[in-house]
Design a protein around this nucleic acid. Structure first.
Length: 552
RNA sequence: GGUCCCGUAGCUCAGGGGAUAGAGCAUCUGACUUCUAAUCAGACGGUCGCACGUUCGAAUCGUGCCGGGAUCACCA
């Protein structure tokens, strides 16, 4: 076979047989030709439009507190999945669901009303989403105080006596009993629930307060999204969608997919799909989480006639999405086969789980500030940016800092639970975002220094050094890497690719001179190669939502 | 208990039927009068959780265990 291929195929140069493997060596001429094609092709690696629409839902925060590290993983996965889908030809619509209603925001509202004394983000110069989050924490603190006071009362003593398990300590019991206390005895709980009822009844003052608090939060979110470089095409508000889904229930009942229970609730039987029975509507006729999601899915199809939809949601909701997708399939929704739950693992800290109640949550804005600060300190030890204007320097430090943070998170396979080590996240060396940026910056620096004629003699270059060949082979593999990332909904594939390309370039750069190459042919060829590598580095990092500075 | 995800070097992670299992960090050694050293080269580091099976061939596929996590509401 080897001999035949060498004789018949021009690109096959020679072969060898090792341990039962037939290796065909492809000629340098083939790779050089290939590079020339790549170099002259704008948007190399991307696929042409496939005429299909895909919606990507990500972030989807609650409006009672600022974004945190968990949201950052979600946002980065969502954004880069959207960019990847765009690269393989989809028309992409980015959306988020704003969970702007419910008991949580009422807690913030109530605390602000009771303890705020009319303070505003402006009067306190606190970032508005943090301002609202502060009152959420305030609520929890006052509630905890109220609860611990209550535990000293005779009422509490009798509750403990009647409801505690055998040999359960008072401490353990009251820890477990907290939610019941909130709903049954708590004064603050009562007030918060009254507020929710008033909101649902459309009470003017309550709605006005609600709108005020939410607008503060949105202003804060905008700042954070902006600094992360992400944006959305459409926002769905839960306050608009939480009553949706009734039509879907009607449809399901009419088609026999759903059935009524004796108490008036509606159910679906998914045991044939290895799932369980699931309530779709309460006995009082009101909606559930799943009802809402059914309605929202349908609404999105009405809005955009999408072919596919990706939900970027943490893996704790795997079961919910299995159920949701199965129900949509049974209902015969036209997009039902294009649904995907991009399920990702939780982010842990080296000290353990993040828990908002215990105050171990890493705030998104703090994180961005810290990583940029790390870059600033690092930059002070160099003098590469000193000749730049303040504004440009700041922009670059922000780009480098965010590259470190984003790459650190997105390089990990989504399904894996990950440990976020704050020290490692600000690393600027090794397998990091800045390392990849640095390869790009080196290329830009060379290209800037090259003031020769554009007409090049690269065509006379005929024999590749190993690093050149390796770079071209990586470029060759790039389109497949993108397709794989899209098929598997896995941005980490792109992150790994970009690192390989940067690493190989750094090695090439170190071993071989470009502008002082042995011949004009080699010089021009390497300039062309460098440009092609820079283009692919930039476009792959763009798919991860990471910007490339021209200098650093 | 049922279902799903994860387990690879001290740590963080790639690789998901094919050759001698790879990176980074950490530790140690070298390389800047030379296109930016946020770089490069080298050393050290492995029972791919365990067992059985499928296969010419298993980190990779199957089954069963072990360990970690999630989930099984008329909450969201």
């Amino acid at each position: 076979m080897g001999a035949y291929l060498i004789a018949q195929v021009a690109e096959a140069e020679r072969f060898n047989v090792v341990k039962g493997f037939l290796n065909i060596v492809v000629s340098d001429v083939y790779w050089i030709h290939f590079l020339r094609e790549v170099a002259t092709q704008p948007g190399y690696g991307r696929q042409p439009s496939n005429g299909k629409k895909i919606m990507v839902e990500f972030s989807s925060p609650n409006t009672n507190k600022p974004l945190h590290l968990g949201h950052i993983r979600n946002i980065l996965l969502g954004w880069s999945t959207a960019r990847i889908m765009d690269a393989v030809g989809y028309d992409v619509i980015n959306v988020q669901v704003i969970n702007d209603r419910g008991i949580a925001i009422c807690k913030s509202m109530l605390a602000w009303q009771k303890y705020g004394n009319g303070a505003t983000p402006t009067s306190t110069t606190i970032k508005p989403d943090h301002f609202v989050g502060f009152y959420y924490v305030q609520f929890e603190q006052y509630f905890r105080q109220e609860y611990s006071d209550w535990q000293q009362t005779e009422e509490a003593a009798s509750v403990y006596k009647n409801h505690a398990k055998a040999d359960e300590t008072a401490t353990d019991f009251f820890k477990r009993y907290k939610d019941t206390y909130f709903n049954s005895y708590s004064q603050l709980g009562q007030e918060a629930r009254n507020m929710l009822l008033a909101w649902e009844a459309g009470d003017e003052d309550t709605v006005a307060l609600w709108r005020q608090m939410n607008n503060w939060v949105y202003a804060g979110f905008d700042t954070t999204y902006n600094s992360l470089g992400v944006s959305f095409d459409k926002l769905y508000y839960e306050s608009d969608t939480y009553l949706l889904g009734k039509e879907m229930v009607e449809k399901g009942l009419a088609s026999g997919v759903f059935y009524n229970c004796e108490d008036g609730s509606v159910e679906v039987d998914l045991t044939d799909a290895k799932l369980d029975k699931k309530k779709i509507l309460r006995s009082d006729g009101t909606s559930l989480y799943i009802t809402q999601d059914l309605g929202t899915a349908h609404q999105r199809y009405v809005d955009y006639s999408i072919d596919k939809m990706v939900y970027v949601v943490a893996d704790e909701q795997n079961y919910h999405f299995q159920v949701l997708f199965e129900v949509l399939k049974k209902l015969g929704e036209p997009y039902a086969d294009g649904l995907y739950h991009l399920s990702y693992g939780m982010v842990d800290l080296p000290t353990g789980k993040m828990k908002s109640r215990e105050g171990t949550v890493v705030d998104a804005d703090d994180l961005v500030a810290e990583v940029v600060e790390e870059v600033r300190m690092n930059a002070q030890e160099r003098d590469t940016l000193t000749d730049l204007a303040e504004e440009d320097r700041e922009r670059i430090m922000h780009q480098v800092g965010l590259a470190a943070l984003k790459y650190y998170i997105v390089k990990v396979h989504p399904k894996k639970r990950m440990t976020f080590n704050p020290q490692e996240s600000v690393d600027l060396q090794g397998q990091t975002g800045p390392y990849i940026q640095n390869a790009y910056v080196r290329i830009q620096s060379v290209l800037r220094k090259w003031d020769g004629l554009s007409a090049n003699q690269a065509i006379d270059y005929t024999t590749l050094v190993p690093e050149e060949k390796e770079l071209i082979q990586l470029l060759f593999a790039y389109p497949d890497a993108i397709l794989q990332a899209a098929n598997e909904y896995d941005p980490s594939t792109i992150a790994q690719f970009a690192y390989s390309l940067a690493k190989t370039y750094h090695k090439f750069y170190h071993e071989h001179s470009i502008l002082n190459a042995d011949s004009n042919a080699a010089r021009d060829f390497r300039l062309m190669l460098s440009q092609a590598v820079a283009d692919s580095l930039k476009s792959s990092m763009d798919m991860l939502g990471i910007e490339m500075p021209e200098r650093m």
